[in-house]
């Protein structure tokens, strides 16, 4: 049945946009330029930014929280670049993912980054190599091209960086998410339609 105006509930977007970063979401024209330019929608048509906005504004966010699709977004922001209403869709996606994690969906897509974030807490830098051999290789290479063997970062910087993670509760947030708690993703369009190329090892 067609929705009547009297049934309309305003501010459903507030349920997702808790940081107030996408205040103009309700101005969405449903024009679909975001989806036309989206490199992920191109390969995986079930990922549809226009549909995500429509569902959020209709109070139907749960189907996306439970989905595999939201974890595919590249965060390239091409959708924002082309949006005639300047809706910063990536900031909405970021908050959808937080909410999915809070409902214990999608941990497996979060855990690889926690590993990097934990190491960043030690180094004050992201993507430092984990092992001693990797470190040695980079230090040699940097030395050879005339740079200091390790990027110039002070103990003070590392200490303050670590303390900010603790003071804001970000460190606690990372530690709270446990792998074994993951609930199965209920909605997925995973199979087929992505590519016809053969996978590694047949």
């Amino acid at each position: 049945m067609r929705e009547r105006d009297a049934d309309r509930v305003d501010n459903l977007d507030r349920l997702v946009d808790r940081y107030h970063l996408v205040e103009n979401l309700e101005s969405c024209l449903q024009c679909g330029r975001c989806t036309g330019v989206c490199p992920v929608a191109n390969l995986s048509p079930s990922y549809n930014p226009r549909q995500i906005i429509r569902d959020i504004l209709a109070g139907n966010k749960d189907r996306w929280l439970r989905s595999e699709e939201i974890w595919r977004c590249f965060w390239c922001a091409n959708c924002y670049t082309l949006c005639p209403m300047d809706i910063p869709f990536p900031l909405l996606m970021m908050q959808l993912r937080y909410e999915a994690l809070e409902n214990r969906y999608g941990e497996k897509y979060f855990l690889p980054f926690r590993r990097f974030a934990m190491r960043a807490l030690e180094d004050g830098l992201t993507f430092t190599p984990g092992g001693a051999r990797g470190r040695e290789r980079i230090m040699k290479l940097r030395g050879r091209i005339g740079l200091k063997p390790w990027p110039d970062i002070s103990e003070k910087a590392k200490q303050e960086y670590r303390e900010l993670f603790e003071a804001t509760g970000a460190a606690a947030w990372m530690e709270a998410i446990k792998e074994e708690e993951e609930r199965p993703v209920a909605l997925t369009y995973l199979q087929g339609r992505i590519t016809d190329a053969k996978k590694k090892g047949g």
């Binding site: 937080y98 979060f110 980054f113 990097f116 974030a117 992201t126 993670f165 947030w173």
Partner: peptide
């Protein structure tokens, strides 16, 4: 970078 991977929250 790690923010947009949801590895931690925006406050930090």
């Amino acid at each position: 970078y790690l923010l947009t991977c949801s590895a931690h929250t925006p406050e930090v």
